[in-house]
Computed example of a mutant assay.
Amino acid sequence: MVRPALVVGDLATDVVVVLSGEPAPDSDRPARIRSRGGGAGANVAAHLARLGTPVVFAGCAGDDAAGTGLVAELVADGVSPAVRTVAGAPTGTIVSLVEPGGGRSMLADRGANLALRPEDVPPPSPGGHLHLSGYTLLDPRPRAAGLAALAAAVAAGATVSIDPASSGPLARYGVDRWLADTAAATLVLPNAAEARLLTGCADPAAAARALAGRHALAVVTLGRDGALWASGRELVHRPAHRATVVDTTGAGDAFAAGLLSVWLADPTDPVRALEAGLAAAAAVVGRAGAR
């Protein structure tokens, strides 16, 4: 039986700009531009729901048409929203500039997401699961909500997964501070750069082992090289699935959801969990947008 999940994080509109070539300063360059539902937390929630996991998403939206539409999209995906409308604030917007080959740069206006309060987050189901987007901890405004959600999950006997979110903001926030904040997490889901930053280990396998010394489980994503699972003395690697890369936006969110969809039903099968995460990531990178 799959345990229910509570996801806490950002809800945003992704404006995905797929460039036809290198940027042309002071000139024009053709591009394909699409708007999609986004936000790291909302992405994980949407993918989890599509994969059959009962999921509640807690976050904030602006009092605008974008927020109304994004919440409706979550409902259509099967997510139960616990989204507060913030008067006078815009819904978050992220512009993703996708270069030929799939690399991307992100421009983020988090908008109403920064207004998240502890009382916006419902209590997790006893014995359920909390997935916390690291972005919630990396800004002082929603940080209290993230810490309260983590404490409530532990008190309820729920497991907790945390995605560190982004190495730049993480470095500015402070590694020691982040490690202290997230000490109670069951599972951490960094990419290779974040794992190096958190541990000081250049080798991803060594970094995964070091994180597994702090948490019950660490899963490190390696981009084109797949992913690593570390738990106790166990270290499992699975290669990435073949994919034609169009846009890497949201690949980590899809991976997290795929892995969690299996792990929440059976925490004893690392190969199956990794394969589910890698399959979800491969599906997302083959198209523009995070979902």
Rank of each mutant, 00 (worst) to 15 (best):
G103K: 13
G103F: 10
R104V: 03
S105Y: 14
S105E: 12
S105P: 08
M106D: 11
M106Q: 09
A108Q: 11
A108G: 07
A108E: 09
A108L: 12
R110L: 13
R110W: 05
A112I: 08
A112G: 07
L114N: 04
L114R: 11
L114I: 10
L114C: 11
A115S: 13
A115I: 13
A115T: 12
P118V: 02
P118E: 01
E119V: 15
E119L: 14
E119I: 13
D120N: 03
P122M: 04
P122V: 01
P122I: 04
P122G: 02
P123R: 15
S125G: 00
S125N: 00
P126M: 13
P126W: 12
G127F: 03
G127Q: 03
L130S: 11
H131P: 06
L132C: 06
Y135C: 11
L138M: 03
D139T: 07
D139I: 00
P140R: 01
R141Q: 10
P142F: 03
R143S: 01
R143L: 05
A144R: 13
A144F: 10
A148I: 05
A149D: 04
A149I: 06
L150N: 08
A151L: 11
A151G: 09
A152D: 09
V154F: 09
A155L: 14
A155F: 10
A156F: 05
G157W: 05
G157M: 00
A158D: 08
T159M: 09
V160S: 09
S161D: 09
I162M: 12
I162Q: 09
D163A: 06
D163G: 02
D163R: 07
A165H: 15
A165K: 14
A165M: 09
A165S: 15
S166W: 15
S166N: 15
G168E: 10
P169N: 02
L170I: 01
A171S: 12
A171H: 14
R172P: 00
Y173H: 08
Y173S: 01
Y173V: 00
Y173A: 00
Y173M: 03
G174N: 05
G174D: 04
G174M: 05
V175G: 03
V175C: 02
D176M: 01
W178E: 03
W178L: 05
